[in-house]
Design a protein around this nucleic acid. Structure first.
Length: 469
RNA sequence: GGCGCGAUAGCAAAGCGGUUAUGCCGCGGCCUGCAAAGCCGUUUAGACCAGUUCGACUCUGGUUCGCGCCUCCA
């Protein structure tokens, strides 16, 4: 029985889908004006994991993750770069897809772009005006009248009064209330625009998610996710827009049953963010670390906990993942159905059903690795690989991981020359001959020579294995 | 200022009112020509102060410290 921590309720709740056996999930994706950083990696990996677990739990999942391809920063960046907005966003959508693929993120079922939904947004704004939740100002902007929506603040736990007290924003004189937020921005020079009943302009940020989620998942759907920083104002405003626009006879229509928010990636105990400038892009990190190590690192913490980034932590993650792959090295494991009755599989399931407790689920993986090493059980090795597969881990051949270089990544610039496997095998043969001749000094010299090149040898009864440090 | 989250061993990170989390690192042993890997064992815990309880890292209250949101942000 799956339990999910629901931000709306501030507690874990048993997950009951609106339609039995089906899950509709919407996640706020990226604004594509730059490369994705590790914080974006976390959202993608976390909700990929959620979607995989729902699949593994036999749900039919409809997973939507949007792409914001029109906003202030995009316009500015395109201007700075002297390229068109379409060129800029296309470039970074492409980059995002490459990064996601490397991290083992399965593409969502639908990835709608905001610019493809302006018509739907206009319809929704018109409906909000008609129902009295929004108003057009004299300058052509359209605002949402926050105090007309009774439930405002229910997600973030804020009250309109508290928000007013903490008011830090420049008051826009076109607003009737400082708390009102913009649904439609009137056109400004050198900015793209669309025709609307309120004149040329472009949509505000929040309305796109309301329009896209209802178009693809309906007025009422199961799960809505995103980073913790979107809780307010973005998600709060989405609720206000959707529930008001879809209201019938003045009664709001519940938009989402379960709201999920993942914790931040931090650097030196501070939130990693563009504004602080302390971010690492995914591709920068992948120059140094295998993408699966990064995925492992993300999933090793619970999705709601803060996740501190440092090289030391990634080194640690790499060692841990190496242990798992090492356990699988000698076994011809294949993908099979998981028998959830098996004690360790059941333990894994229990952990995952408890609000996606991946750290605890991973402990089961290490337990299985110990079994494999101790008992040489092919069954345990198979279960290990298949359970890890549910998390999108251990998908490669062990040797591919242990002997591969991150240089195989297309992003990797040529680093110091590394030995190819053929010459390594040659050295191993030379060393074997020296060992047979009891010339241990020579054997050790060869081993050291390889060690200096980052190749670690491991003798076993069946021969010598090697892996990259 | 308002609202919220957190504090676990050298590092990272979970569960749990009483019984080994787990990984990395360290130490000892086995194995090995020697290593490495692996196996076995093992040292370091639960910010602080009270309270509830037969018993609290786990529940309650307070203190201190850290972080986040309240403005674009995953």
């Amino acid at each position: 029985m799956l339990k999910i921590y629901n931000t709306l309720a501030r507690e874990k709740q048993v997950f009951t889908p609106i339609n039995a056996g089906k899950v509709s999930m919407y996640v706020c994706g990226m604004t594509v004006y730059d490369y994705c950083h590790l914080g974006h990696a976390r959202v993608m990996v976390v909700f990929d994991m959620v979607s995989r677990w729902l699949h593994a739990s036999a749900y039919v999942v409809n997973y939507v993750r949007n792409i914001t391809d029109i906003d202030d920063k995009i316009i500015q960046r395109a201007n700075d770069n002297k390229e068109s907005i379409a060129q800029l966003t296309e470039r970074f959508i492409q980059a995002m897809n490459e990064d996601a693929a490397k991290l083992g993120v399965i593409p969502p079922d639908i990835e709608p772009k905001a610019t493809d939904f302006v018509g739907g947004m206009i319809t929704m704004i018109a409906s909000l005006i008609e129902k009295g939740y929004a108003y057009a100002a004299d300058n052509g902007d359209v605002f949402y009248a926050v105090n007309h929506f009774a439930g405002y603040g229910k997600l973030s736990g804020k009250s309109i009064e508290d928000l007013r007290a903490g008011e830090r924003v420049e008051v826009d004189s076109n607003k009737r209330d400082p708390m009102d937020f913009v649904l439609w921005k009137s056109v400004k020079p050198n900015e793209p625009s669309w025709d609307s009943p309120w004149g040329k302009g472009r949509p505000g940020w929040h309305i796109e998610c309301s329009a896209m989620s209802s178009h693809h998942l309906g007025e009422h759907f199961d799960i809505h996710g995103g980073g913790q920083d979107l809780q307010f104002p973005h998600h709060e405003n989405e609720i206000a827009q959707s529930e008001a626009a879809h209201s019938h006879d003045g009664k709001p229509c519940q938009m989402v049953n379960y709201w999920m928010h993942n914790g931040f990636v931090r650097v030196d105990d501070e939130k990693m963010s563009k504004s602080l400038g302390n971010f690492f892009t995914i591709r920068t990190v992948l120059e140094k670390y295998d993408a699966e190590v990064v995925r492992f690192f993300i999933l090793r913490a619970h999705y709601r906990s803060p996740l501190n980034y440092s090289d030391q932590h990634l080194d640690d993650a790499k060692s841990a993942l190496t242990r798992l792959y090492t356990a699988l090295r000698a076994y011809p494991v294949i993908d099979t159905e998981i028998n959830w009755q098996h004690p360790q599989a059941a333990q894994f399931k229990l952990a995952m059903d408890d609000d996606f407790n991946t750290p605890e689920a991973m402990a089961v993986l290490f337990d299985l690795a110990n079994d494999v090493n101790k008992t040489k059980s092919l069954a345990s090795a198979t279960l290990l690989k298949n359970l890890a597969g549910v998390l999108g881990l251990l998908g490669r051949n062990a040797s591919e991981f242990l002997q591969g270089t991150i240089a195989s990544s297309s992003l990797q610039q040529a680093t110091e020359p590394t030995l190819d496997s053929r010459s390594i095998d040659g050295k191993i043969l030379q060393r074997a001959a020296a060992k047979t001749a009891k010339n241990f000094a020579e054997a050790d010299r060869i081993r050291q020579e390889l060690a200096d090149a980052g190749i670690i040898l491991e003798d076993s009864a069946l021969g010598t294995n090697w892996r990259r440090a």
